[in-house]
Design a protein around this nucleic acid. Structure first.
Lengths: 180, 180
DNA sequence: CCGCTCATGTAACTGGTTACATGATTTA
DNA sequence: TAAATCATGTAACCAGTTACATGAGCGG
């Protein structure tokens, strides 16, 4: 059995927390997640869940009362095992590795802009990040009353990283504004 | 003309900074980059560069003295234009959006582990991040003497974000250790 | 001249995306 | 009863990966 992909792991993890949820709920949860990595498209989720059922990691229960054929998903024993293996891989450094950051990438090539455009770019990025930070902080408040402890921690991570990015951009802009 | 993809933009940006470089140099630079997003595989780079030449964004000069057919790449006027459009897209929020973080994703599902395993996971991740931080700090020193100003800023970003992640994990671990 | 690095390339695959399509259920 | 939402699905596509293959140039 090959390891779970990131999306597969996220789906299995979601079902482990939301036992008995429908594929549709998995799908919308992925789509609403803050990270834009996965679209939560039906073309991704439904075939993926079928694959996991075929591999014996998921079990499905069809509600006969529902004409749409809505199914409820839960983990099998093998599914829980696969989830644990996905959560804690042999090589943890793959998880911790530097994430791809389109802003950081672009900064390397800002010499293609005039110094005025450069500063405008950094200022604009900074303001977008500040707005985003507000969103995550609001989300954090939400999670603090009503969310699980782990959801709070994950949201704190989003806040911490966004804040770090914003502050980094701010100091970069000030630095570049100084040196022209 | 469609917009440049992230990899295309990175390649065009690299060539803008390293004018006259060979596709091989582009490739190895991508492969050595800290972010694991792109492998820098020849199967990605060579066809990509050919596409960009066909689109008129890159120009190639073949050194006739070289039996390997090594080519030197540079940007055309259209290439510089496309680079600027890629650097500063209409929707800046797409650049600033929360990056995908496999650690953060996994934290949401740590309830599948025993509390002991959970703490071990966080401790291990924290130590990997601490090691990584050392690497980026060393790189920063390197860039400070000998690198461009923009390279220094980009590396400072890597340091800032890694540090934020590490500190976030540390406080999460301490918190979970407290509540059992 | 052997092995390493430089340098380019192709073919099969993969894990997603977008766009489309269909029908059931609920709500105004 | 119309519109919105719930719910599932397929087909065409795409950007990248892995694995493989080839050969030139160079240092020991």
């Amino acid at each position: 059995m090959p390891d779970l992909s990131e999306l597969e792991g996220a789906v299995v993890g979601f079902i482990s927390v939301h036992d008995g949820c429908t594929p549709y709920q998995v799908r919308t949860a992925m789509a609403q997640s803050h990270t834009s990595r996965f679209s939560g498209s039906s073309g991704a989720i439904y075939p993926l869940i079928r694959r996991l059922v075929a591999r014996g990691l998921l079990a499905q229960e069809v509600r006969s009362t529902d004409g749409r054929g809505t199914r409820r998903c839960s983990l099998t024993k093998d599914g829980r095992k696969a989830l644990r293996a996905w959560l804690v891989p042999e090589d943890m450094s793959a998880l911790a590795g530097l994430a791809f950051d389109p802003l950081r990438t672009r900064i390397l090539f800002l010499s293609a802009l005039t110094s005025k455009q450069r500063l405008a770019f950094l200022a604009e990025a900074e303001s977008v990040l500040t707005e985003e930070l507000k969103v995550y902080l609001a989300d954090l408040t939400l999670k603090r009353n009503g969310g699980s402890e782990l959801e709070v921690i994950a949201t704190e991570g989003a806040v911490a990283i966004t804040r770090a990015r914003r502050n980094w951009l701010r100091s970069a802009r000030r630095h570049l504004a100084g040196t022209g």
